[in-house]
């Protein structure tokens, strides 16, 4: 779970740092930090933390809010840390009835036939990758985003981070049931998919930011154009007047040329200024094993056949679409490559 509440966060962080924490009332927390740590971070050993403004403060007491520099000091060891963790969700409702009907409704096999061989409860691993990003343009925007992917079939579970989080209330540390686990794809392949997905997700997250910058860029360019247009008009007038005097005529023409180039250059400058560069990096990954229903299916194309597991996901309460082998996009109308029997989307099949 994310400690969105400041007092929860301070408690967890203090305990992680080896501090002893005592909470008396909602708005008061007493913390004793280990001596060595206090020295290392240049902080007191003992604090009385308050989380609401107070008129009078006792010794060693501090009102903590999200802007407090102490929070930064305490969290310094986490700044560059990368973490991989793993968990399992034990009990989730699994759909049993009318799965074949759903399968038929959701998937369309264009150049192959299919036969569901077996429907049985299995487990499946999902990888949640959390990214921190910084978009820099004429202004800066920082944010967090997550990608969740089924390691078996590469299905992207969009916007389901919160749902995953909510499930962890039931999390168990029981041994992962390897026997029933649908085999994960190689990590390299999983990451190729994630790399493609994350840019798309970031583009969506930055859409409003981009829109706002676009609006400002257009305004700036209009302002520039209006200004230079006025100059160009003035020069035009002069040219009209000085047609007879060749020397001045050429001079004005070259001024006109220069003004246009100047405008062009300034517009390019503006566009460069507003260009959005996004740096992003995953800082943590969580593998979650959850129970699913696997629909083991035999696909036949011409004389070849292969078995594939389709997955009913209890979190989205739906059948996951398989991904195109070439472009990784989820497919509802499936083509099979006639040689390899890989799943392809209509666009990649050509």
């Amino acid at each position: 779970m994310i400690y969105k509440n400041i007092s929860q966060y301070v408690q967890q962080l203090s305990e992680f740092l080896g501090g002893y924490v005592e909470t008396q009332v909602d708005s008061l927390m007493e913390v004793v930090f280990p001596d060595g740590l206090a020295q290392q971070l240049n902080i007191n050993e003992y604090y009385k933390f308050y989380f609401e403004p107070r008129p009078l403060m006792e010794e060693n007491s501090l009102v903590l809010n999200y802007n407090s520099s102490l929070l930064e000091q305490l969290g310094v060891s986490l700044k560059e840390k990368t973490i991989f963790s793993q968990t399992a969700v034990s009990s989730l409702y699994l759909k049993k009835a009318r799965l074949e009907e759903l399968f038929k409704k959701r998937l369309n096999f264009i150049n192959s036939t299919y036969k569901i061989i077996e429907i049985k409860p299995s487990t499946c691993s999902y990888l949640i990758l959390n990214y921190k990003y910084t978009a820099v343009s004429e202004e800066r925007k920082d944010g967090l985003t997550s990608v969740a992917i089924n390691e078996h079939n590469l299905f992207l579970v969009n916007n389901l981070y919160d749902e995953f989080e909510a499930l962890f209330i039931d999390e168990t540390n029981a041994a992962l049931e390897v026997e029933t686990l649908l085999p994960p794809s190689p990590l390299k392949v999983v990451f190729s998919m994630v790399s493609m997905a994350i840019e798309k997700i970031l583009k969506e997250e930055l859409a409003d930011f981009q829109k706002s910058l676009n609006y400002r860029l257009e305004k700036d360019i209009k302002r520039l154009s209006d200004y230079f247009n006025a100059i160009i008009k003035e020069i035009d007038k002069k040219i009209a007047k000085k047609k007879t005097n060749n020397e001045n005529f050429d001079k004005e023409l070259s001024r006109l040329d220069f003004t246009e180039k100047e405008l062009e250059r300034k517009i390019i400058d503006q566009k460069t200024r507003y260009q959005i560069n996004v740096n992003f990096k995953p800082f943590s990954a969580l593998r979650v094993i959850i129970p699913v229903v696997a629909l083991k299916t035999l696909l036949r194309c011409k004389k070849k056949s292969r078995e594939i597991n389709f997955v009913w996901n209890p979190i989205i309460k739906d059948l996951e679409n398989p991904c195109c082998k070439k472009c990784f996009s989820p497919v509802a109308n499936l083509f099979l490559d006639e040689e390899s029997l890989d799943i392809l989307c209509p666009a990649c099949r050509g």
């Binding site: 400690y3 962080l13 973490i83 959390n130 967090l144 962890f168 943590s284």
Partner: peptide, 22 residues
């Protein structure tokens, strides 16, 4: 880290996420 498959405690994962969020 994932390849090594030596997962750390989920509590630490939560704390790191919270750190970035805060």
């Amino acid at each position: 880290l994932i390849e090594k498959n030596q997962p750390e405690e989920k509590k630490l994962y939560d704390l790191l996420f919270s750190y970035h969020y805060v």
